[in-house]
Computed example of a mutant assay.
Amino acid sequence: MTNGGGNARPSKNERRDAAREKARQLREEQKRRERRNKAILFTGIGIAAVAIIAVVAIIIVNSIRPPGPGPANMASDGVKIGQDLKAVTTPSLPAGSDPVPSEANAPNVVDIKVYVDYLCPFCGQFEATNAEQIESWVTEGSATVEIHPISILNANSQGTKYSTRSANAAACVANYSPDSFFAYSALLFSNQPQEQTPGLENKKLVDLTKEAKVKSASKIASCINDGTYNSWVTDATNRALKGPLPDSDVKKVTGTPTVIVNGAQYSGSLTDPNEFAAFVLQQSAAPTSSPTPTPSPTPTPAS
Rank of each mutant, 00 (worst) to 15 (best):
Q192W: 11
Q192N: 11
P193W: 08
Q194K: 15
E195K: 10
T197S: 15
P198A: 11
G199A: 10
G199D: 08
E201V: 14
N202E: 14
K204M: 09
K204V: 11
L205Q: 03
V206S: 06
V206G: 01
L208W: 02
L208Q: 02
L208D: 02
L208R: 02
K210M: 08
K210V: 08
E211G: 01
V214N: 07
V214Y: 05
K215G: 13
K215C: 00
S216V: 00
S218L: 07
K219G: 03
K219C: 00
I220D: 03
I220Y: 03
A221G: 10
A221W: 09
A221Y: 08
S222Y: 01
C223P: 01
C223F: 03
C223E: 04
I224Y: 06
N225W: 12
D226E: 15
D226S: 13
G227D: 05
G227T: 07
T228H: 02
N230K: 08
N230I: 01
D235R: 10
A236W: 02
T237M: 00
N238K: 14
R239K: 14
P244C: 12
L245Q: 06
L245H: 05
P246N: 08
D247I: 11
D249V: 10
D249C: 05
K252H: 13
V253C: 12
V253G: 12
T254A: 14
G255P: 05
G255A: 13
T256V: 08
P257I: 04
P257Y: 06
P257V: 06
T258W: 05
T258N: 10
V259T: 11
V261C: 06
N262H: 06
A264T: 15
Q265S: 05
Y266V: 02
S267G: 15
G268P: 03
S269F: 05
L270P: 01
T271G: 04
D272L: 03
E275R: 08
E275I: 00
E275H: 04
F276V: 07
V280S: 05
V280C: 04
Q282L: 13
S284D: 09
S284A: 15
S284L: 07
A285G: 15
A285K: 12
A285H: 10
A286F: 03
T288P: 04
